[in-house]
Every structure is written in C-alpha cells, then in structure tokens.
Design a protein around this nucleic acid. Sequence first.
DNA 1: ATACCGACCTGTCAGC
DNA 2: TGCTGACAGGTCGGTA
Length: 276
Amino acid sequence: MPELPEVETVARGLQRRVAGDTIESVWLSEKKQPLKSSTAEIVAALEGSRIVQARRVGKHIAIDLEKANGSQPGMAVLHSQWIVHLGMTGSMLVTTPEAPIEKHTHLIAKMASGKEVRFVDPRMFGKLAVTSSQFQAPGHEPLEIDFDSFAGLFRKRKTPIKSALLNQSLLSGVGNIYADESLARAGIRPKRRAASLTHAELKKLYIALQKVLHDAIKAGGSSVSDYVGADGERGFFQIKHLVYGREGQPCRKCKTPIKRIVIAGRSSHYCPACQK
DNA sequence: ATACCGACCTGTCAGC
DNA sequence: TGCTGACAGGTCGGTA
C-alpha cells in the first residue's frame, strides 16, 4: 500500500522518535517470516546497534546502524543498514511496551529508551533485510530527477505511461495511487503509449508528479484503508484524490463520472473528459 | 529486451 | 447468518 509519500512519512516518524536510540534486543515471530536476510543475520546486525538515521530510499526504509566491534575501547565501528519494505500492508510502529501487540506483528525491537519498534504486516508482502553495503534503489528518485532525464525514461517505450510510472527500475517510489493522480493532474490518459507523450505533456507530468508527491508528504500520505505512520497516525491526502478510488463519482473539475479500467492487472482511474 | 499474468498472503465488503 | 467472489497501497518469476 505504501508509496513514496507514505514511506517518507514513516521514515520521518522513525527518525524523529528513535534516531540515536540503541536496539537492546530483537524478537522475531515464529511464523514464516517476511525476510530477505536470515533471522540470525537480522538479530546479529540489530542487537546492540545504535540507530544513526532513518530515511526513505524509493519505497524502502533504510535505517543506518552502527555498533562497536567488540567491547574494547578504540575498536573499529561496524556499520550496517536495516532495510524495510512495507509491501501492501506493512507498518513500522514506535510504541510503549504496554501497547497491545497487534495480530501479524513479526518483529519487536526493544530500545534502550524503553520504546519499542514493531513491524506489523498482515499480508506479509513486506520484506526485512540487513546489509553491510549502502542500499540503492534501482530507479531514479522522482523528487530528484531532472526533467531531461525524466523525459528520457519514456522515449521509445511502447508500454502504457501508467505501467512506465509504476516500473521501479525507471522511477523508485511511484505506486498505483500517485501514478493515477499525477496523470489526472497532467490531463493524460493512463493507457497512452509512453513514447507518444509530447514534450509539453511530459513537462506537465513531471511537474504534476512532483507536486502531488510533495503535497501528499505534507498531508502525511494517503490512508485508503489501513496505512498508518510510525505513531499510528493516519494520512489525509486521500481527501485530495482526483481519481483514485473515485470510480463513478463526478470529476472534481467537469462532473463527468470517473472511469476505472485495468492496466497490467492494476486498477486505473481517470476522467474521460479531462484526460486525453 | 519487453510485457502480460498468476502467485504470494490476509482481510474486508458487496451480493446472494 | 453464512458463503463466494472481487478487490486491496507491491513485487517476482515464468512465459510468450
């Protein structure tokens, strides 16, 4: 569920609440784990590590960790990264130890401050991993890419523009909601072949995408069903959606009913009058 | 190389 | 009150 603005909100929440805190112990549920690294690797990397920084990379949360290599003073510092992908339904919550443990809690990290960081994910599409190298997302950051590079991503691509926006190896962080919402704001139909977009349309899309992502971050993301930030708070950008989740409802600009079609297996929403 | 499609999971909601 | 099917913010691997 979480796309760039939601993951950014969670990462900022973690940064605010637990940066500088130390992980004292880690509990992992017995159930089949949504892990990319082994349980032992995760426990070894996390326990005793200080959280230096939490930030977003694409749709991933990268948590920079460091700990002393051995107990002797002056020993080298070990650096690692805890990588979290929230999948469709994952959340990273900072709670008190007394907070009831939600069903589908897969990891609890007890912090030196007494707080707990919990990973909860009902559908288990999320992933946890640790790495000693710097994690890099495959595609460009939509909020950092320059316009010429952005336009270059779509040149020669026959795929629908909607599919291209969702392709994480092109842009990292755009998901189903913000693909639809940016196309709506740019007046472009989701099924248009990517390569058919004119220079002017690409410019509109570039500006619309960055604006909608910035606005959604300001609103704490979109909470369509169960998304919450690190403090359990809901986002409220869903009230600003022009098309996503609004099938049959009147377009906010021209009152034409919003259409829903399926592109590459994903629901796609648009205004048949405003989007060409 | 590129592009669909089902699979991976659980939960919810509409309709019968 | 069930039951069934469709659908849900994402990605992967297999196939054409």
